[in-house]
Computed example of a mutant assay.
Amino acid sequence: MQDQPEDVPAQPQAQTSSQPGSTPQPAPAPAPAPAPQPQVQPQPLPHPRPEPAPGPNPGPAPTSTYGAPPGYPPAQQYAYGQPVGFPPPSGGKGTAGRAVLWAAVGAVAASVLWAGGILVLGRVGDNPDLAGYRTKANLCSAVDYTALRTEYTQEDNLPTHNALKHKAIDQSYCSISLKTSTSSSYADAYLSVEMDLHKTTDPAAEFTAVWSEYDQRYEDYEVEEVSGFGDEAYLVTEDTTSGSGTSGSRAVTLAVRDGWMTYQMSWSTYSSSYETTTPPEISEVSRWVKTDTRSTLENLRSD
C-alpha cells in the first residue's frame, strides 16, 4: 500500500450499496488541494539610536542613518552661552560674515558709550566760577547799608549772623534790625543778606527759574529784571498796605547771580511796626537796596 502525503487530505472511499439490485452511485470528485501560502520573511528592525554616555560634558549628537534626531541644540555652540544682544546663530552660507558684522557693531557701540562716559565725567571736574567772591564767617561785617540808614538812623549793635562751609557750597547769612529812632521800642523794619558760593553745581538754571517767576507764588508780588548787577538780577517787590499805609506790609528783595555766586538783600516791614509814621514807599526802598547791594558786593569781592 502506497503511503499518502501528510499535507493531502484522505480521499473518501466509494460507498457500495449492500442492497441487492440497487444502482451504484458514482464516487464524489476529490477536493483540490489548497495552494501553498508564501512564507513572509521578517524584516530586520532599525537599530535604536545609541544614548550619549553620561558625564558633565556630553559629546556631539551621534550621526544616525535615519536623519537627525529632533530636540538637539543647533550645531553652533558658544563656550559661555548665547551672547547678549546678538542674534541667534543660523546655519547656511554667510554665518561667519554676519558674526563679524555684529562684532564690529558691538565694538563701535562700546566705543561710543566709552567716549560719552568720558565727556559726561569731564563735566564733574569743572572749576566753579566764583567771580572773585569769598564767604565770611561774619557776613554782617561786610554788609553796607548806608543808603538804608537815611531812614533807619539807629545802628543795630547785635546783628545775627551764621555761616556754613562745605565742599559743595559755602553760605553766609546776616540779619539786621532797623530802627527809625531811639524812641522805637521794637524794630521798625528788618534787613537780611545772604551769599552762597556754589562750588560743584552751576546755579544759573535754578536761579533764573526761582527769581524770574517769583510772582507765581503770590498775587501781591511783582518781579522786574534789572541790569548792572553780575550776570543777572531780579527786583522782587510786595505792597499790601492800604491807602493810608496803616495796615499791611511792604517788602523789597534784590537777587543777584554773578558766576556761581548768588546773593539776596531783602528789606521788609509791617505798617503796624511804625508807631508815629508810615513806612517808606517801595520805589524809595528799591533805590536804597540797589545802592547798598552794589557796595556790599564790592566788599565781599575785595576782602
Results as ranks from 00 to 15, higher is better:
residue 5 P to V: 10
residue 6 E to I: 13
residue 9 P to H: 12
residue 15 Q to P: 00
residue 20 P to M: 08
residue 28 P to G: 09
residue 34 P to E: 13
residue 35 A to V: 01
residue 39 Q to P: 01
residue 42 P to M: 07
residue 47 H to Y: 07
residue 48 P to F: 10
residue 49 R to P: 01
residue 55 G to F: 08
residue 58 P to D: 14
residue 62 P to M: 14
residue 71 G to T: 02
residue 71 G to F: 03
residue 74 P to V: 09
residue 75 A to L: 01
residue 87 P to T: 12
residue 87 P to Q: 11
residue 92 G to K: 03
residue 97 G to S: 12
residue 99 A to E: 14
residue 101 L to S: 14
residue 102 W to R: 02
residue 102 W to Q: 11
residue 105 V to F: 15
residue 106 G to K: 02
residue 113 L to G: 04
residue 120 V to Q: 15
residue 121 L to R: 15
residue 123 R to N: 08
residue 123 R to K: 15
residue 129 D to I: 06
residue 130 L to P: 08
residue 131 A to E: 12
residue 136 K to D: 07
residue 136 K to E: 05
residue 142 A to Q: 14
residue 143 V to Y: 01
residue 148 L to K: 06
residue 152 Y to F: 15
residue 161 H to C: 08
residue 163 A to D: 04
residue 164 L to Q: 09
residue 166 H to P: 00
residue 177 S to W: 05
residue 190 Y to F: 10
residue 191 L to M: 04
residue 192 S to C: 01
residue 193 V to Y: 10
residue 203 P to S: 06
residue 206 E to K: 00
residue 209 A to D: 04
residue 214 Y to P: 02
residue 223 V to Q: 04
residue 223 V to G: 07
residue 224 E to T: 13
residue 237 T to C: 13
residue 239 D to R: 03
residue 240 T to C: 09
residue 258 D to L: 07
residue 262 T to D: 15
residue 267 W to T: 02
residue 269 T to R: 03
residue 270 Y to L: 14
residue 276 T to Y: 04
residue 285 V to A: 02
residue 288 W to E: 04
residue 290 K to M: 09
residue 295 S to Y: 03
residue 296 T to P: 01
residue 297 L to H: 00
